[in-house]
Design a protein around this nucleic acid. Structure first.
Length: 201
DNA sequence: CAAACGATTTTCT
DNA sequence: GAAAATCGTTTGG
């Protein structure tokens, strides 16, 4: 069962990012099922956040989906190569989002290896937002899609991350965001090998 | 219409 | 550790 829209449409995007650790992100794309446990997230707090594409509540064709209701996907192309997957949160006209940066592979590992053109299961299979999206088959064409499935769905399978194993740090790759680059909006599971290597580690 | 720029990953030295 | 790969989005002329 996918997490309900009420989970996403809450006010505190940083809290949501934290709660997403331990949830299972599952996709069913090209009739292939793959999934993994979310181990790393980042919150992007909308109009007041210099690191967000929606800073200053600037609406463009690309960011429009973030101004819609929470519970949908925001997928965009980064560096011309990587498809980065975000979850839109909060209500209409509040452009909050959570970037999913890494998962620990669960189901469909053979499919993920094939999509990533890898032979063996190493952390780099799904560590990092671009790598994770490629493994799950998420592409920019899925932007705006509902997270109620079947293509993309986030489930609570009862996996609990202990409070002391949750680390808060500064976000990766947002040095241009000036003072907002230092905010502790990145969350990851301590000592998990699938957490990406970022500057803030 | 032209140009710069990334919420990154991989490869090579 | 440094640098290339690569292209849609955004901004400026």
């Amino acid at each position: 069962m996918c997490l309900s829209e009420s989970f996403y449409q809450r006010e505190n995007v940083v809290q949501i990012a934290r709660e997403l650790l331990g949830k299972v992100l599952a996709t069913e794309i090209d009739n292939l099922r793959t999934s993994g446990i979310i181990v790393e997230t980042e919150a992007y707090a909308g109009g007041g956040d210099r690191a967000s594409h929606a800073f200053g509540n600037r609406r463009t064709g690309r960011t429009e989906v973030m101004f819609g209701e929470g519970g949908r996907a925001y997928v965009y192309l980064c560096y011309g190569i990587h498809h980065l997957f975000n979850i839109v949160t909060n209500v209409k006209n509040v452009p909050h989002a959570v970037l999913i940066r890494a998962i620990e592979p669960l189901e469909g590992i053979d499919i993920m290896l094939k999509r990533r053109r890898k032979e063996r299961v190493l952390p780099q299979l799904t560590a990092g937002p671009g790598a994770m999206s490629e493994a799950l088959g998420i592409k920019t064409q899925y932007t705006g899609l509902s997270l109620q499935g079947p293509e993309i769905c986030i489930e609570d399978r009862g996996i609990k991350i202990a409070e002391e194993d949750i680390v808060a740090a500064s976000r990766v790759g947002v040095a241009y965001a000036r003072e907002d680059a230092l905010l502790p909006y990145r969350f990851y599971v301590k000592d998990n090998p699938y957490v990406s290597r970022g500057k803030g580690l």
